[in-house]
């Protein structure tokens, strides 16, 4: 794969993925894991790990290139030296965060995880290194394979090296709270808050930007500064229409304007239609006809 890097020049990818590709191979079941914080390897299956390490940071392009096995916290720390950050949930590895595709509490302001991945070089079920996407934020060269990879839980290919979109760190970032609040009232009062949470009684908001704007916004919405968000119940992570958060029973913290609900009770997500399931399976079959990558993982 060095051939490709040499041919296309700058910024295209630098990690030699040949060893990783050889390890994944072309035969037999294989599973991938990072540090195991998001479910880890499929039990009883030969396990591989993606390369790690940050290759370069380009704050003037707002991009970073790293191995998929790089810990998110390490990435965030290195980006911080350049006054940048990435909209990935903390903990675990970059590859794990992308493969699961679940955003953290800042999704309202920072966008979903699927908007972070610009280019991926992954190892396919045939043991080949494949490139998806490109190194620039704006890119409509071919189908959006990167978005299909985010959230695919390693079922279509194993991420080796990624180029991610970064964003500048805000000058001021502060959580606020209002003890009794109607969530949508606070939500509509604020201009592009990074997060608004509601637990059925109180409202929390994360505001970022110029310090004067942050304090003015907080004042107008009668919010008081606090150390951070409330603890999140761990029974289930639900994904519902944001308009319906007002009627959830039980103990929960809901992300206003997003529809992610952290609930104390377990939850079974609604089943997708049979035709959509068939389509997902058809894609899995196209990418991994023998079902060898992360066997048993649903698409």
């Amino acid at each position: 794969m060095r051939r490709r890097a040499a041919r296309t020049g700058w910024g295209v990818g630098v990690i030699d993925l040949d060893a990783f590709a050889a390890e994944v191979g072309a035969e037999g079941p294989v599973t991938i894991t990072g540090v195991g914080s998001r479910g880890g390897a499929v039990p009883g299956v030969r396990t591989v790990q993606a390369p790690s390490g940050i290759q370069w940071v380009q704050p003037d392009e707002m991009i970073v290139c790293c191995g998929a096995g790089t810990p998110v916290d390490e990435l965030v720390a290195v980006l911080a030296e350049h006054h940048q950050t990435a909209a990935l949930p903390c903990g675990g590895t970059v590859g794990g965060a992308l493969s699961l595709g679940q955003a953290d509490l800042r999704r309202l302001g920072y966008g979903p995880v699927r908007d972070v991945l610009l280019q991926a070089r992954y190892v396919s079920a045939a043991g080949e290194v494949v490139k998806a996407g490109g190194p620039t934020v704006k890119n409509v060269s071919g189908f959006d394979l990167c978005r299909l990879l985010v959230g695919s839980r390693g079922a279509l290919g194993f991420l080796g090296e990624v180029i991610l979109r970064t964003r500048p760190v805000a000058q001021c970032s502060q959580w606020f709270h209002r003890e009794a609040g109607e969530p949508f009232e606070v939500f509509t009062q604020l201009h592009r808050p990074v997060s608004v949470l509601w637990d059925g009684t109180g409202v929390w908001a994360l505001l970022e930007g110029h310090p004067d704007d942050v304090s003015a916004q907080a004042r107008e919405a009668s919010l008081a500064a606090v150390d951070g968000p409330p603890p999140l119940p761990g029974g289930s992570r639900r994904s519902i229409a944001p308009a319906s958060i007002a009627t959830i029973p039980g103990r929960f913290v809901a992300e206003v304007g997003v529809g992610t609900v952290h609930h104390a009770e377990p939850w079974v997500p609604p089943r997708r239609s049979q035709r959509v399931l068939d389509l997902a399976l058809a894609l899995k079959h196209e990418f991994d006809p023998l079902g060898r990558l992360n066997p048993g993982i649903d698409v």
Binding site: Q102, V140, R237, D298, V299
Partner: peptide, 25 residues
């Protein structure tokens, strides 16, 4: 000829992001 829905009001649909793959196709 079948009619399907990809994505929707809920933020994180289970399974592959078919909505994301469709945009730009």
């Amino acid at each position: 000829g079948s009619v399907v829905q990809f994505g929707g009001e809920a933020p994180e649909e289970d399974g592959l992001d078919l909505r994301g793959a469709f945009v730009g196709s």
